[in-house]
Design a protein around this nucleic acid. Structure first.
Lengths: 221, 221
DNA sequence: CCATGGCGTTAAGAAAGTGTAAAAGCAGCG
DNA sequence: CGCTGCTTTTACACTTTCTTAACGCCATGG
């Protein structure tokens, strides 16, 4: 079952969307304001986000940019404005599609399915680095065809490293993507998880190399 | 075709400069005094300015400061040899480079091209200087396609030099950008890091050239 | 010719960052 | 309530990087 996050200031609109989504089997959470929306996204890790561009306080576009700093979640943008420039700007900043209000529920659901499927096919649901294989869809990892038991954070951490395999990933980038900015501490616990990962991967797979003062790099041996 | 503005009080120097510049296809205008120079700059909107520091009336430095209040035009400063503190002050107030009188026309033209090129090749996640490449996003450096292992300060230092490649960078500017704030010693440790960088870059890449009393310059060989 | 100042070079101690283990919080669950 | 598995905290040895200091070199100028 997919989780959806609604970011919209109008309560009426939120209720409508929730009804439509829940009838399709989505698990729904809401936020009435941009800043809250980002926190919800970090906490619930939704599979899709519905974002209203006409937010009070933090601009919808601003929310989108901040979200894209650490998340690749599919975003469907809602807008009353028929202006081409706004839509284009949203799409250029990482939105996956948009619908203009008012919209038909059939159209909304259709677009939702499309952008979720596109995410999976575009960035294949599997990352392979040497003997290591990550199945993003089922959150499973395997090393040399043997299953590898990872905790959620370990998986998220390894995923970040594997996505940029062979290149350095800054500690800040790791922090943003794994802990979604909800941690004050730059790197205290990071070292521990890196340690766990290295032990589980062992000698047979890729190595996690440290670049002192910068970050880490996953190297295919 | 580029427009050049000459601000110099000596008529002989102006005639010499005009000849050199026009032979290179520049469109030239002149001013014999600082206040007039500013007016000319505002009116003609030159693509590059040649400014003599030893002006009567309004000091050359004063002209530079006034110009920088509203314009980003590249400025090449002309100065006699002795006054090194003046040169440093000029560079830190927004001058792009300097030549000492008397100068060779080849050197003059070379520096002109460099400071004009810079305006266009800025603001990217990658800095390229000859064989040297800096990836700011991943904090990776490579020389001739081979990875180059740099420590954090070395990277920051090389970044500053590379951003102003071909131009001179004052020791103070380096201090401010690499050791932000905690300006302990103007240059004690700087020499060591420069030394390390030179060793790592070796012969195959750009050279780090010292301008005694002023600063350093990264020169593409 | 020697003094001077700025620079290159080297070595060693200081500081910062990292690996590792163990213990302490923190949920969910029988 | 006391498990159990996961995450975070704490502590300390260890490695890498940074700073400091000393010395030799070269150019400039008396």
């Amino acid at each position: 079952m997919s989780k959806a996050l609604i970011i919209d200031d109008e309560q009426q609109m939120r209720r409508l969307l929730r009804m439509v989504l829940e009838s399709r089997g989505y698990e729904v959470c809401e936020a009435a304001e941009g800043q809250l929306g980002l926190q919800e996204a970090a906490f619930h890790r939704p599979d899709v986000v519905l974002l209203d561009l006409g937010l009070p306080g933090m601009n919808g576009l601003e929310v989108l940019k901040r979200l894209r700093e650490w998340s690749d979640v599919p975003v469907l943008v809602l807008s009353v404005r028929d202006k081409e420039t706004i839509k284009v700007e949203a799409l250029e900043n990482g939105a996956d599609d948009y619908v203009t209000k008012p919209f038909g529920t059939a159209e909304l659901l259709a677009r939702l399915t499309v952008i979720q499927r596109r995410r999976f096919t575009r960035q294949s649901a599997e990352i392979v680095v040497g003997e290591l294989k990550l199945d993003l869809l089922h959150h499973e990892a395997s090393l040399d065809e043997a299953p590898l038991k990872l905790t959620p954070t370990e998986f998220a951490l390894l995923k970040v490293l594997a996505e940029h395999a062979g290149r350095i990933v800054t500690q800040n980038q790791i922090m943003k993507q794994v802990w979604a900015g909800q941690t004050s501490d730059p790197s205290e616990g990071l070292r521990v998880h890196i340690n766990h990962l290295r032990k589980k991967i062992g000698e047979s797979g890729p190595r996690i190399v440290n670049e002192p003062g910068i970050g880490y790099r996953l190297e295919d041996s």
